[in-house]
Every structure is written in structure tokens, then in C-alpha cells.
């Protein structure tokens, strides 16, 4: 392991200032992913600025009826929060479907969004990887890519984003609040993560030194009946093959509003805009759900080893929406 400096600031602006002067530094949240990557020599920060106790660790109700999640709230705490469980159950379900109890105790809400892909080649410095070392090539495209992306890939990268939480947040139109060297920003969750394009080394639109301070959830009444479904190779403690986060508002058999996002299929949480548009205002039923899923997945460009994700994503979306129609879980 490389030697690094460890600092703890007393304010968020102090933390941002510390990192602004360290181009190879990083913020440390729960460290459940970053520390692993440092051991593997994948991440090589020379400075860690510990922000775990710096940002808020509270979940608060906002005056507009929404909810603010402090960046330092642990995944366990967030999953168990009564407000979250009542108003946005899919968010709690997403968190509980990830990692293990111990990891959830340590991992923070903001850190969860910034974890890196679990593509095996990204995590192995002895193999080429454009995300880790731009220009070296992608080992996954012609290698082991069973778990990797089917949507929005580029010739440079087929990695997926591993967060389950982010998928639920994208479906809920959440925004992240950041503080950085250039001041404060508010970034919609749908825009936080990027598609790989020719620059797969960049996971998000954040700039160096940007610190996520909070995540805001807008009010969304029908999200009280929402569902997060995770399909994986074992029943627990596995990253997603496919996830679906969904909420649907149906009145008299007609879809008044709907939110759908996929995880495990792309370099970013995949908001199913096309499917939502097709469904909004139309009848709610299995055929419509299936057509909407097929429309969303029409752009899928799977590789030989992950083509199964296309029917899997379709079937999972249809089943998730059907189960929501059947009533609150």
C-alpha cells in the first residue's frame, strides 16, 4: 500500500480547500470501496480528507414535503429511517438489497453514489482498462462481461455502476447538493453519473474537490407505493445483474404517472424515459408494460456474454409494475 496523508477538517469548506490543493487527494466517507481499491493499487490518493463526521448524518423533512438526506447518513440508518420507509419504500429496499449489515453500517449515502465499478478488469492492475488507465484498452469487451452493461456503452468501456441506492434516487428525481472550489451546485441525480463515451475514467460530472453535502428527495406521493426489485446470482451479498426501481400512479386503470429506473445495465443508473412516456396516460396492464420495456430496451447493445440481461430486464420491469398494481407491499 502506498503511503498517504490523512486529514480531518472542521468544516466542509475547510475540507474542500484541503482537497483543492491536492490534485491526487480524495474524500473519505465510509471507505468501504476506496480502501479496498487502495489496497489493490487501483486508487492511489496521496491525501485522504475524512468527511464522514463533517457532513450531516440526519434525515430531515423539507418544507416542500420532500426529504433531505445528509451526505454522512449511513446506509443502515437511511434504510431504517421511518420517513424514508413510509414515503419512499423503494429507497429503503434498494439499500437493504446491497452489501451486508456491517458494510451498510459503515457506508455513507454520498459515498454509495461515488463507488466505482466492480468490473473485474478495473480492479486488477495487471490487465488493461480504459477506466483505470485511459488508452490501454478494454479487457471486458472480449473477456468476462457477464455482469456488465447493455445500454449506453462505448467502444472504450462497458462497465456498470454498482450502486442500488443511486437507481432508486434516479427514479425519484432526487438532486445532490455539492460544495466545491467553485461554490455550491445542485445536480439532478439523472445527470450526476455519465455514460462512458471516450472518457470512461470519469464516472460523474463532479469536478475535483466537489463534496456532496446532501441528497434532496422531492415530494412524490405515489412513491409511497414503490418497489425495488434486484435480480442477482445469489440471494444476498451480490451486485445486481438487473435491478428495477419503480413507482406507478394508476387511477381507474389509467397510468397517471410512473417512474422507472434500471440498474446493472449501464455506466449510470438508467432512467427509463421512453418506457415512462409510453405508459403515461395509457392503460395499465401487462401488454402495455411489456411494450414499454421493449421500447426502452430497443437500444440495448449487449455483448455475447450478457445478452440474457435484455429479456431479464424486460421481464423484471413487467413483473415489478404488475406487483405494484396489485397493491402496497
Amino acid at each position: 500500500m502506498r503511503t498517504f496523508r490523512y486529514e480531518r477538517a472542521s468544516t466542509t469548506s475547510g475540507a474542500v480547500a484541503l482537497l483543492a490543493e491536492a490534485p491526487h487527494g480524495a474524500f473519505l466517507g465510509g471507505g468501504t470501496n476506496l480502501v479496498d481499491l487502495m489496497k489493490l493499487d487501483v486508487a492511489r490518493p496521496d491525501l485522504l480528507v475524512d468527511v464522514r463526521r463533517l457532513t450531516s448524518d440526519r434525515v430531515e423533512e423539507l418544507s416542500n414535503g420532500g426529504v433531505r438526506i445528509g451526505a454522512g447518513v449511513s446506509n443502515s440508518q437511511l434504510a431504517a429511517d421511518p420517513l424514508i420507509r413510509r414515503r419512499y419504500p423503494m429507497l429503503s429496499q434498494a439499500l437493504l438489497s446491497g452489501a451486508s449489515g456491517q458494510l451498510r453500517n459503515l457506508a455513507t449515502a454520498a459515498g454509495n453514489l461515488l463507488q466505482r465499478t466492480r468490473c473485474p478488469y478495473f480492479q486488477d492492475v495487471t490487465t488493461p482498462c480504459n477506466k483505470r488507465e485511459p488508452g490501454t484498452g478494454c479487457s471486458a469487451i472480449e473477456g468476462h462481461h457477464r455482469d456488465l452493461a447493455i445500454l449506453g456503452t462505448s467502444p472504450e468501456c462497458v462497465a456498470t455502476h454498482p450502486s442500488d441506492l443511486a437507481v432508486a434516487l434516479v427514479a425519484l428525481d432526487a438532486v445532490v447538493r455539492t460544495e466545491g472550489p467553485d461554490g455550491e451546485r445542485v445536480i439532478p441525480m439523472t445527470e450526476l453519473h455519465r455514460l462512458p463515451g471516450p472518457e470512461p475514467q470519469r464516472d460523474t460530472v463532479l469536478r475535483h474537490g466537489d463534496l456532496i453535502t446532501a441528497i434532496d428527495l422531492p415530494p412524490l406521493a405515489f412513491a409511497a407505493c414503490s418497489y425495488f426489485r434486484k435480480i442477482r446470482d445469489r440471494a444476498s451479498y451480490a451486485f445486481a445483474l438487473v435491478t428495477v426501481a419503480a413507482a406507478i400512479d394508476v387511477v381507474d386503470g389509467v397510468v397517471r404517472d410512473v417512474r422507472i429506473a434500471f440498474g446493472g445495465v449501464a455506466h449510470k443508473p438508467w432512467r427509463a424515459i421512453k418506457a415512462e412516456e409510453l405508459l403515461r396516460g395509457g392503460p395499465a396492464g401487462e401488454d402495455q408494460f411489456r411494450r414499454a420495456a421493449e421500447a426502452e430496451l430497443a437500444d440495448a447493445r449487449p455483448l455475447a456474454g450478457n445478452a440474457f440481461k435484455v429479456p431479464l430486464a424486460r421481464n423484471t420491469m413487467v413483473r415489478t409494475l404488475l406487483e405494484l398494481l396489485e397493491g402496497p407491499r
Partner: peptide, 25 residues
């Protein structure tokens, strides 16, 4: 253990990727 035929090694060489049944299974 998933072998990468080009490199000749097991690529899923950790317990996150090499799945062993969890208690829930």
C-alpha cells in the same frame, strides 16, 4: 472460477465476485 483465456488467469478472484452461497441461499 471464471478463466480469461487471453490472460490465463481467474478473473473473479475475490469473494465479491467468486460467489459462495450466502446464508440467505
Amino acid at each position: 472460477s471464471v478463466l480469461d483465456l487471453r490472460f490465463g488467469h481467474v478473473v473473479n478472484h475475490d469473494l465479491a465476485q467468486y460467489h459462495i452461497s450466502s446464508n440467505a441461499d
